[in-house]
Every structure is written in structure tokens, then in C-alpha cells.
């Protein structure tokens, strides 16, 4: 069946967990979730899941991003043994964590690593929205705070790719406090005169957007990314008004002076290496 040759990249993360669908990822052709054009999967992967026809940025996992960004796809994972517990005994939290670990092969919603970008050494953290919506609980907060501290101690720049629905509600107030935790660690890195590039990807909202994601020395965002504090529905209900279509997109933010620039994923490595090389310590 021709239909079986295609798989949709924008499928809800929950749907991709069974083996059958992962076999389908071997399909030769992929349909763009925006313009519906049928693309060679091989070409699409080469273009980092960016549609060659309409420039739509399709979901990109944290491991894929690290592979694409780091020289020879080589990097050292840091603090990868840090995993979540259920501090408030919140109902069903453990089973949800287990499900996401199985589904993604990740230990948590962020990968923290050290490696080279065209020869520029950096600490690189990449959040993955497939894992609990990229939400930040204790484990994510700890990994990010330690990454900042590690970067400070080793006098390295840090890049954080954010992708998050916000705080992890199952960890209640502890998750809110992770915003402060990452901020105090980021402040030390800042005071050491080191470079922090915040790189917002789709989606960056809530408590993550309202903490480290917004306070890089340089704030970048990926084309088309949804970025905002409150959810669109909540705002529409509050102000009783329909919001424009481009509301809370990366392009909307740059127009309102909230970002340094929007970057195409295909320019990610070039852009970052340029910035890093101009901040190299001599």
C-alpha cells in the first residue's frame, strides 16, 4: 500500500511508541505536516526535518539535534544518571515517567552534554518535548543547574535549547522552585563573564519561558517556534478577544523586540559556531 510508505512526523508523540510505527520511520517518503508535499525521508533528514518546499520546521528530537550540531555527532553526555522521583506521591506520576522513558529512550526531558561545534567547545543542553512535554521538575532543574556550574568551573559557554510546556505540575511547588534554582546557577555563570545562548524551540512556554529561556546573553529562536508565558486559550478566555494567528510565534516575538533573532534550523550550526568563535577567550 502506498499509504504505508509515509509517516507523519507531526504525529502526537504518544502514537509513535509502538514498534509498528518505529518501523515505519524507515519509510522512503514523508509528507510535510504543513504543505502536505511528499518528500524523500532521506532529504528531509539531511535538512534536519525542515521541509524543503515550505520551510516548515517539523519536530526534532534532542538526540537528533545533538547529532546534527556536534562535530562528527560526537559529544559527552553529562549528568545523564539523574532521574526523577515522585516527591509529592502524586498519583500516576511514576507510570507516566516510565512510559516516557520507554517511548523516548531518554532518562529525562533534557540532555546535557559537552562537545565541539566547528571546533568551538561548549556545554549544550537540549530539552525534548516528547518527555512529559519537556516540563521541568527536579531532575531537569538539577541537570541544568549542574550544567551551568560545570560550564562556570570549566570556563565554557553554554547553549540551552528549550522545548517545554513549563513547570512539571506533578512536582508542585518543587518544580516552580527549579526556575529559581537554574537562575541562581545561571547568575554565577554570567558573573564569571561567560557566554550563555538561549535557543528557544517549539514550544517554549510557562515556567521555562519565564526563567532561563529568556535571559541569555543572546536569545535566539527557531523559525515558527511557539514561545510565550501563558497559553493562547487562557489569554483568549481572560481578555475575551481572539488573538492573531502569529501571536506568540518566534516571528511575533522578534517583531516586539523580545528576541535577538530567528534562526532557521538549517543555519543552526553555522550561526552558533560564528557566535561562539566571536566569544572565544584568548
Amino acid at each position: 500500500m502506498l499509504k504505508d510508505l509515509f509517516y507523519k512526523l507531526n504525529k502526537r508523540a504518544n502514537d509513535i511508541q509502538n514498534k509498528e510505527t518505529s518501523d515505519q520511520s524507515e519509510a522512503i517518503m514523508t509528507k510535510c505536516s504543513n504543505c502536505k508535499k511528499i518528500l524523500f525521508t532521506k532529504d528531509l533528514k539531511k535538512r534536519l526535518n525542515v521541509c524543503g518546499n515550505c520551510n516548515h520546521h517539523m519536530p526534532f528530537t534532542a538526540p537528533d539535534r545533538l547529532d546534527a550540531l556536534m562535530d562528527n555527532s560526537e559529544y559527552e553526555l553529562l549528568f545523564n544518571g539523574i532521574v526523577s522521583v515522585n516527591p509529592l506521591d502524586f498519583p500516576d506520576y511514576e507510570s507516566k515517567l516510565e512510559g516516557d522513558m520507554k517511548k523516548t529512550g531518554l532518562n529525562e526531558a533534557v540532555l546535557t552534554a559537552r562537545g565541539m561545534i566547528y571546533g568551538n567547545e561548549a556545554v549544550v543542553c537540549v530539552m525534548d518535548a516528547r518527555f512529559r512535554m519537556g516540563s521541568m521538575g527536579s531532575a531537569v532543574g538539577e541537570k541544568l543547574a549542574r550544567s551551568f556550574t560545570y560550564a562556570t568551573e570549566n570556563r565554557l559557554p553554554i547553549i540551552i535549547f528549550t522545548a517545554s510546556g513549563g513547570a512539571r505540575m506533578q512536582e508542585g511547588i518543587i518544580s516552580l522552585m527549579q526556575m529559581a534554582k537554574v537562575s541562581v546557577a545561571a547568575k554565577r555563570h554570567d558573573e564569571a563573564g561567560l557566554l550563555y545562548i538561549a535557543y528557544m524551540t517549539n514550544p517554549t512556554t510557562g515556567g521555562v519561558s519565564a526563567s532561563f529561556a529568556s535571559v541569555g546573553d543572546i536569545n535566539l529562536a527557531e523559525t515558527g517556534a511557539l514561545i510565550g508565558f501563558a497559553g493562547r486559550r487562557v489569554i483568549e478566555e481572560t481578555i475575551k478577544e481572539k488573538l492573531p494567528d502569529d501571536f506568540q510565534t518566534a516571528e511575533f516575538l522578534v517583531k516586539h523586540g523580545q528576541l535577538d533573532r530567528v534562526v532557521n534550523r538549517t543555519d543552526m550550526k553555522r550561526t552558533l559556531s560564528k557566535i561562539l568563535s566571536m566569544h572565544k577567550e584568548v
Binding site: 519565564a210 526563567s211 532561563f212 510565550g228 501571536f247 516586539h256 523586540g257
Partner: peptide
């Protein structure tokens, strides 16, 4: 959670 708040950088102001 309002339109103007988002336009003026609600996230950034808290983060800062």
C-alpha cells in the same frame, strides 16, 4: 495572562 503582557515580555520580566 494578557495580550499586552505577552507583547511586552511577561516571560522576560519574570525571568530577569
Amino acid at each position: 495572562p494578557g495580550k499586552a503582557a505577552e507583547e511586552r515580555g511577561q516571560s522576560e520580566s519574570i525571568a530577569r
